[in-house]
């Protein structure tokens, strides 16, 4: 099993696609930093104007911690998309290259191969989110320094500098679970369609539609929300509420872990029953 995992990781990190996803993420984070470095003061003074009428704000509002928090907003669509570009490929590429035939005619079980691919997917997501964390935080702190953070979630939240890193890295860990859940869905689709582009487009379509549905907080739509995985993805924001509502976050973690188990289970069944007839 270890050998198979090593091979899957080797294949993953030998493909240029993996590095493209990393490069896009790094560029995205740097653009956010550079954009705010050049025009951030002006933008924030405009945004905070109404607030200054009621509060006395001392020190720099724009600081590295705030920029890092803002960079985390890419978790809504950008990061999930960049994640599945690679994780979908873990299965679909084997069908596209025809190498699934070569692998499955070796004396290894389908279960072992499936498990190795799942493990490599999780390892990739951890690496990817580590890059997100480093490039969201380090350039921002180097350019803007640190400080308290003002965020708008259910009103104004003042996050003290001391606890910021704990909240930031908790968000990253939570997002790893979210990305594994989303990748499980795209992986399942890859087993159906055996094609990278189709699987990515459908996954992305589901993400966009559910994110949109999530904004409908009235009537019948509000009762759907707890069943939308995007609703649970968005719970990372709760780490930036003064009193972190752990029970609500844990509920979302349970939901996302359940989603992982559900789609991985379906994929496992599908993969084991799959006729490689093409």
């Amino acid at each position: 099993m270890i050998r198979l995992i090593e091979i899957e990781i080797y294949k993953l990190f030998s493909s240029y696609r993996t590095y493209i996803a990393f490069a896009i993420t790094i560029v995205l984070m740097l653009i956010i930093n550079l954009g705010l470095y050049s025009d951030g003061e002006e933008l924030f003074s405009f945004l905070l104007q109404p607030l200054r009428e009621y509060f006395f704000i001392e020190g720099a509002v724009i600081n590295g911690n705030l920029i890092a928090y803002l960079s985390l907003n890419t978790l809504w669509v950008h990061i999930p998309l960049l994640t599945i570009i690679v994780t979908t490929y873990i299965f679909s590429s084997e069908f596209e290259y025809g190498t699934i035939r070569v692998l499955l005619t070796q004396p290894i079980s389908r279960n072992s191969l499936f498990t190795a691919k799942i493990v490599s997917m999780i390892i990739y997501i951890i690496c990817f989110m580590a890059i997100v964390a480093v490039f969201a935080l380090v350039p921002a702190v180097l350019l803007f320094g640190t400080g308290d953070v003002i965020v708008f979630i259910d009103g104004i939240q003042f996050i003290q500098e001391d606890g910021f890193l704990t909240r930031f890295f908790s968000t990253i860990v939570f997002s790893i679970i979210s990305m594994v859940a989303f990748s499980s869905l795209s992986m399942y689709l890859a087993l159906w369609f055996k094609n990278t582009l189709t699987s990515i487009l459908i996954s992305l379509g589901i993400l966009i539609v559910l994110t949109l549905l999530q904004t409908f907080v009235f009537g019948i739509f509000s009762s759907w929300q707890p069943f939308l995985f995007t609703y649970h993805f968005s719970k990372w924001q709760l780490f930036f509420v003064n009193e972190v509502p752990l029970s609500s976050i844990l509920n979302s973690v349970y939901f996302l872990v359940g989603m992982c188990i559900f789609f991985m289970g379906l994929s496992y069944y599908k993969f084991n029953k799959l006729n490689i007839s093409e």
């Binding site: 091979i7 290259y97 025809g98 035939r101 070569v102 005619t105």
Partner: peptide, 26 residues
């Protein structure tokens, strides 16, 4: 086996393709 058309990881060399399989099959 050789089934259908030959299949490899195109981004790897011939040697690396064989080494991967060698590792799988010991």
């Amino acid at each position: 086996y050789l089934i259908d058309s030959p299949a490899f990881y195109p981004y790897l060399s011939a040697k690396k393709n064989l080494r991967l399989l060698k590792k799988i099959t010991k």
